[in-house]
Write a protein that binds this DNA or RNA. Structure first.
Lengths: 183, 183
DNA sequence: CAAGAGTATGTACGTGCGTACATAATCTCA
DNA sequence: TGAGATTATGTACGCACGTACATACTCTTG
């Protein structure tokens, strides 16, 4: 039976499906992701999703990679604002952005990150994501300090996502500096 | 139609369904949880699960509560081994246990914790889980130090779950102490 | 002993899923 | 211009889901 003509070939369709995936992850979370839901969001038939991506898992891996790339680009810009004496303030500002305006993508990053606890391919990406901040910090402070701050910032960011209202940059900076009392 | 007689009433059935849920969470993760999967694991018909728990979400909330109770009991014991001068070593030992012998339950705890980013009831439990360690630490060190160490330990624990092999207690203790260079 | 509460059980409904694949259209290149 | 590669599309399969609920059994209490 003749069907409606196909739409013209769309060179950006794969990229748009991926962008739809990231959008849906931000709005509704990992549990809302299916081939049909992404297809609806991208405005394409479900067959397009399975044509361009081998599986839903392959799609999520690709989405995780693209989020890491976004993060890396934004951390590269951020890294240029950092000096060793201002590192706590700059890091506090970064964390503040990630828990406020960038909250949705940060939440998704953690959801995908945790897939790495049970899936080797996601684990590799999770380690990559962790290293992105570490490398920026290591440009400005000794390696031990960079590890310390990256670990502390991650814990602080995760805890801060649970707080209402979100802590401000000053509070975050204080949390990043070593406490005044001898430990 | 006459059916096989019911099994005798089982006063522990609800608790056993809950234990089966926690077991399944540890072995296969959050994505493997369904009423049918839990019923199979518990050795009961699926109607038992929906009789005792209003929904799968209610079941997961109850599982999260029971994991927090287990954690609280184990931290209460642990808290009695801590003194202020040994806090980094004891905390390192605690983290080491949680990423090695206690790895499965720690991974589940994070999976359930992240549900709190999108669900208010889980969020409340997530805050409770965070406070459990903080309160133990605050018995031994000033509040600012307790916050700092709880945040750092959480970030360290999460990062360490991704490392193979897992870092040892000495490395963890070093990561928990402030770095030697002035920051 | 019987009524009633609590528990156990099996079935069913509507829904959505992942993925495969046959078919057809679009586009490129020789 | 036509062959072939690539892309688009709709349909279908088998599976599993969450939850409801009718029915029946077990146990407790008066």
């Amino acid at each position: 039976m003749a069907r409606t003509k196909n739409t013209p070939n769309d060179p950006d369709r794969r990229a748009r499906i991926l962008a739809a995936t990231v959008g849906l992850l931000q709005d509704e979370g990992l549990s809302a992701i299916s081939a049909r839901a992404v297809a609806t969001r991208a405005g394409v038939p479900v067959g397009s999703v399975s044509y361009h991506f081998d599986s839903v898992r392959a799609l999520l891996l690709e989405a995780a990679r693209s989020i890491i790339e976004l993060r890396e680009a934004s951390l590269t810009s951020w890294g240029q604002t950092v000096t060793a004496p201002t590192i706590h303030e700059r890091l506090a500002e970064l964390v503040h952005t990630q828990i406020t305006t960038g909250r949705a993508i940060t939440v998704v990053a953690y959801e995908l990150y945790l897939l790495g606890l049970r899936d080797g391919d996601f684990r590799a990406l999770g380690n990559e994501a962790t290293n992105v901040l570490y490398r920026q910090l290591a440009c400005h402070v000794p390696e031990a300090d960079a590890h310390h701050l990256a670990t502390l910032a991650d814990g602080l960011q995760l805890h801060s996502l649970f707080r209402t209202p979100a802590p401000g940059p000053e509070e975050l900076a204080a949390a990043l500096r070593p406490p005044a009392s001898p430990g």
